[in-house]
Design a protein around this nucleic acid. Structure first.
Lengths: 156, 156
DNA sequence: TATATGTAGATGCAATTGCATTTATCGTCA
DNA sequence: TGACGATAAATGCAATTGCATCTACATATA
């Protein structure tokens, strides 16, 4: 094992510090982004995430189970979130031709508009909280380290 | 303004990527740590955070409003969490001599024991998710970048 | 075809969260 | 002292989440 590569039960102080800061920063950022949206009278971040995925899918729409794969929401959470989005007219549910159990979710014009207005606020938060605080080079470094955390190399 | 330092409303693609990965990693990690605790029949992460703060405070204990300062929990959240911790015998509430409105929260022996058992599981998650995936040098880099995100230099 | 097993999505119910407000005490100042 | 605004903490109520289960349809197997 390489020096500095720990794989034991007990975390090193270095790992604990990195974890603590990751937790702290992400919670603060989420809170601040949520506050900014609330302030603007817009729906919460979760709505943006889902609208984003559905919008990306385009005309073909998305099946709810695909949303579950792409996001970190639980099945019942997606089910109810979609119900709320539909009630607000932001998405529409269409029957699926070859699977009677399922449905296809498609974003509506109103949904696109809401997403656009949310992005104006959300994007500003990202710019202020992240874009304005690190250089491109630093952003690239942190992005790559965060990616390594999510996708560890097999020999680690 | 320095090259690479963006401060406009619209975030750069680099900032968006860093944000997205930060959100994704932190959510996944929280979820995995929560799952590990649940698996072990232990209380959720929030309990650990609070028990940790109270334990750190030692014999003197902590006032609820100090917990609010140290953590990111809302006032009503702390109030109810402490009620649950007290109901479980993990903390005790003591009246404050010179402030009739307040109380002092102190951890009990059972609380310390619960915290210890939670750490065995939580610490292992940290070691696996963070400690085993980056070298000390990399941990130091990401820690410092996360810290910069939380505490931007004034001239940024 | 009948039966069993699997998958998609919804839902009843309990627990938790969020919001707004309330209660009690403090500190200040006329 | 007495009135008044500020602070500490709790709480009623609505919304959301988590868990377990349920319904409906699909696919595999005999």
């Amino acid at each position: 094992m390489l020096v500095g590569m720990m794989n034991k039960a007990a975390p090193s102080p270095e790992a604990i510090q990195a974890w603590a800061r990751l937790m702290r920063v992400s919670r603060e950022f989420v809170e601040q982004a949520e506050d900014a949206l609330k302030e603007a009278g817009l729906p919460p971040l979760a709505w943006y995430d889902v609208l984003h995925e559905i919008a990306e899918a385009g005309e073909g729409g998305l099946r709810p189970f695909q949303l579950i794969e792409r996001t970190l929401f639980a099945q019942y959470n997606i089910s109810r979130l979609l119900a709320r989005l539909e009630a607000d007219g932001l998405v529409e549910k269409l029957p699926v031709a070859d699977d009677g159990r399922g449905q296809t979710i498609r974003i509506t014009a109103k949904g696109r508009e809401t997403r656009r207005r949310m992005w104006a606020v959300y994007g500003r938060s990202i710019a202020e909280l992240v874009g304005a605080r690190l250089s491109f080079a630093e952003l690239s470094v942190i992005s790559s380290l965060l990616d390594r955390l999510r996708h560890p190399r097999v020999d680690d």
